[in-house]
Amino acid sequence: MLRIGIIGTGGIADAHIEGYRAFPETCEIVALADVVPGKAHDKALAFGLTEVAAFDDPRAMLAEARLDIVSIATPPSTHAALAVAALDAGIHVLVEKPMAPSLEECDAMLAAQRRSGRMLSVVAQNRFRDDLATLKDVVDSGMLGSISHIRVDSAWWRGLPYYDLWWRGTWEKEGGGCTLNHAIHHIDLLLWLLGSPTEITAMLANAQHENAEVEDLSVALFRYDRGLAQLTSSVVHHGQEQAIVIQGAHARVSQPFSVVAERSRPDGFPEPGGDPDVVSRIDALVAARTPLAHLGHEGQIGDLLAAVREGRAPVSTGQDGRNAVEVVTAIYKAGFEREFVALPIAASDPYYRAGRLVANAPHFFEKKASLIEAAS
Rank of each mutant, 00 (worst) to 15 (best):
G90T: 07
P58S: 05
D267C: 14
E172A: 09
A324R: 00
L45K: 11
A249Y: 06
Q242E: 15
F128E: 05
L228N: 03
S258A: 13
A22V: 08
V278W: 04
D153G: 14
I187D: 00
V315D: 12
R151W: 13
L343P: 02
Q247E: 10
T179W: 01
T317G: 12
L295K: 07
P350S: 13
G318W: 03
H79V: 06
S116I: 11
A284K: 07
E310R: 09
A243Q: 11
M203H: 15
S370C: 10
A65P: 12
A31F: 11
A124E: 03
A81C: 01
H209P: 14
V236F: 07
A334L: 02
A334E: 04
F55E: 07
H363C: 15
D34S: 12
A133I: 00
F222M: 01
I72G: 00
M119W: 10
V260K: 08
F257E: 02
K43G: 07
S254G: 14
H182V: 15
G117N: 13
L2N: 06
G169P: 12
G11C: 08
A83Y: 03
A85T: 05
S280I: 13
Q230K: 11
P161D: 00
G355T: 12
G19A: 07
G273Y: 03
V253Q: 00
F128L: 07
R59Q: 09
L32D: 08
A60E: 13
I244E: 03
H182G: 12
D14E: 12
E241A: 15
I187T: 03
H294I: 04
G318C: 05
D275F: 07
R356Q: 14
D277Q: 13
Q208C: 09
E64C: 12
L49N: 06
I244C: 05
S218V: 05
A53S: 12
T9K: 10
E271N: 04
R312E: 12
G239Q: 15
P161W: 01
I184N: 01
H41C: 08
T170S: 15
E174Y: 07
L2V: 04
P350Y: 12
P58I: 02
E339T: 15
V245H: 10
Q240M: 15
C106D: 04
S146W: 08
E51H: 13
V327L: 09
H92R: 02
H41V: 06
N206F: 11
Q300F: 01
Q242S: 14
A243F: 07
A111G: 04
S116L: 11
P197L: 00
